[in-house]
């Protein structure tokens, strides 16, 4: 029995830490000077010369160390001082189009937690930057091992991928302060090759998604080709007595969709 147990432990260890068995174990964690240089270049491009401070006590990012599907990498950004933050910027450093999303929060919004799914093209840092109401910037990062997410073929024809485009669902959690929005859209990256015609499908993605609660904005997302197909966005909101959520979405081809959802009953 002892033998079995130790063999099982060895087996589990081997599965979980295969690299540990080899010499030259990779210690890459995104802190390498060239990766930092890339971030400095990109952040200057996006934020100009505004200083960006370490955001340890203000913003956190959770991402898998090694993504199972590079075209569908779940990201959770949490804001610890929600009243100070008015926007979050998501940058996937080594993606060819790195500025993945800009999320602005409105009066009905709560930046405490936002969840997105993104495409990761190569081993990269993913930076989340919180912007406060007075314009200060705070960053944090996660290093993700995945590659090929932007060019991963969709697996069906373009027409098939566009079926039901713009259809939406909203799932409210019982706590009446968090919800998940799902929108059907292939979010073509422009880097995906149709495996039959061997032509690239032009980029076409959800450019802007705006969620309102009553007449107040919850959040607005400016998207990019780095957002996965069929976006699933988990968000928080400030509960109120309003009865309806409205979602307005527009893609880069100019097509628009609007949907309303009954707000859940408030639990007091």
């Amino acid at each position: 029995m002892k033998l079995l147990r130790s063999l099982v432990i060895a087996a589990v260890f081997t599965t979980a830490y295969p690299a540990a068995l080899l010499a030259g174990v990779s210690m890459i964690d995104g802190s390498e000077p060239e990766r930092q240089a890339r971030w400095e270049e990109l952040s200057e491009y996006i934020f100009g010369d505004r200083p960006i401070e370490a955001g340890g006590d203000l913003i956190t990012i959770e991402a898998p160390t090694r993504a199972q599907d590079p075209a569908l990498v779940p990201i959770t950004v949490k804001v610890l001082k929600k009243d100070e933050v008015q926007a979050i910027h998501l940058v996937i450093d080594d993606n060819p189009s790195p500025y993945a999303a800009r999320i602005k929060f409105g009066p009905a919004g709560d930046p405490s937690e936002i969840k997105l799914r993104v495409r990761v093209n190569d081993y990269t840092n993913i930076h989340a930057v919180a912007e406060t109401a007075d314009g200060r910037l705070y960053q944090t990062r996660a290093f993700v091992k995945a590659s090929g997410g932007c060019s991963a073929p969709i697996g069906v024809s373009d027409a098939e991928a566009l079926k039901g485009v713009g259809q939406m669902k909203m799932k409210f959690d019982d706590n009446a302060k968090t919800a998940t929005l799902m929108i059907r859209h292939p979010n073509f990256s422009g880097m995906q090759m149709n495996q039959v015609t061997r032509l690239y499908t032009p980029a076409r993605y959800l450019d802007e998604i705006k969620v309102s609660y009553g007449d107040k904005t919850v959040f607005e997302i400016k998207g990019d080709i780095s957002l996965s197909s069929d976006p699933v966005i988990g968000f928080s909101y400030n509960p109120s007595d309003e009865s309806e959520f409205t979602v307005r979405a527009v893609d880069t081809k100019g097509e628009r969709w609007e949907e309303t959802f009954a707000a859940p009953a408030r639990i007091n």
């Binding site: 491009y45 990256s189 690239y200 980029a203 076409r204 450019d207 880069t252 081809k253």
Partner: peptide
């Protein structure tokens, strides 16, 4: 560079 990208894309 993909076709169909808005001019604002970085």
């Amino acid at each position: 560079k993909p076709d169909g990208l808005p001019a604002s894309t970085i």
